[in-house]
Amino acid sequence: MKVAINTLNFRQGGGVERYILDLIKGFHDEQITPRIYTCKADATLAENRWIELIKTNLSLIPRKLRHRFLSSFVRQHRQADEVILSLFYLYCDIFICGGNHKGYLRSQNKTANLYERFIKIPFEQKVLNECKLVIAHSKLMKKELIELYQVPEQKIQVLYPPANTAKFNPISAEQRQALREKLGFNADEIIYLFPSTGHHRKGYALLKNYFNHADLPIRLVVAGTPVKESKNVVSLGFCKNMPELYQAADFTIMASSYEPFGLVGLESILSGTPVIFSENMACLEVLQNNFGFTFSRDDVASLASAVKNSINLVKAGKARIDNPHACLNYDPELTSHIEQLLQIMKNL
């Protein structure tokens, strides 16, 4: 069996781009060299040595139409014995779904514009109809695909995404104290990390309002898109030291209005830091035991209660997670994920 991945842009990045590079690493460890179909590629990536790159030039095609043209190219040039995966809405045999536009619009109470209504959403439907199997990254995603796109339930399998357990892991109390001093976190303040580049969807306004009105020893530390600093809010801007920030923080907090999974939750837990998440976030499907606290976005009192409970946990010296895997109900290792994915492909 040969493996291929269809992607609009083969590059380093967050979310989907990072997941594709993880898959390539996992396939390489299994002595599999995947073909990568794309219209744009970063020639400096180390992963280039582990792939066969098949590239077409779509630079003259409007960006919003490239899905269609790349899909046509792959359909024409695919090998007969390969299984094609895609994490974008592109032609493939197995579509790995981490999000959908109808679900996003519904969560934001938005109406589709002309492009979304006549091009984007119909092409999502086309991909879902034509692929042989859909892998959903959460039960929430599976539910939305059934309800909003009428994908048959038997065509969807839930497979949670992997996390980098080598990069995100706990450190000793002594190391953590030194790290907090290095980052400028005061010993008498409780740090709530908010990692985000999409503040509106991640619920920044709700959190900022609460923290700025709270008369407590708490600080909201925003890592990502810069924000204006205020009473209890600090902005670090875009950061490349996320493992250190997770390790140094007391809690990771997020109030997303829509989160089809949320790898942030796993990365925080694996770093030994509990979470405070709005109860609609899909990554809560895989969290168990003493992972932290949840709250309702529609009830500020529940957020206040979660924060106060977290303060009490810190004061009791019980806020760190010594055994992160005990807080997860699945194996987040890349090797396990690749093993399950290959089995799915063999059964296709």
Rank of each mutant, 00 (worst) to 15 (best):
N323H: 06
S71C: 12
L183R: 06
S305R: 14
S257G: 14
V83L: 07
P260K: 12
N347C: 09
I20P: 08
A46G: 05
E147Y: 07
L133S: 08
S256C: 08
E52W: 12
Q150P: 02
F185D: 02
E47F: 09
P243L: 04
G203T: 01
I5F: 10
F118R: 06
T44K: 15
F185G: 02
K2N: 10
C327S: 07
K110G: 12
K318S: 11
Y192A: 03
R68Q: 11
V158T: 11
L236I: 05
L206W: 02
L45W: 10
V286M: 04
A43I: 09
C239A: 11
D22Y: 15
I36H: 11
N9F: 13
I20Q: 09
L193N: 08
L303N: 01
I156K: 09
L128Y: 09
L328K: 08
V314D: 01
A205C: 04
A163N: 08
Y160M: 08
F238W: 15
E82A: 11
G203L: 01
R18S: 13
R75E: 15
A214I: 00
G198W: 06
K2P: 01
K110T: 09
I253C: 07
S302P: 03
C39G: 13
P161I: 12
H337P: 00
M1Q: 08
A301V: 06
C283G: 00
E285S: 04
Y91P: 03
R75I: 07
V307L: 11
K182A: 09
L220I: 01
K318G: 10
T335G: 13
A301K: 10
F168E: 03
D322L: 13
L303R: 02
L263T: 07
N57I: 11
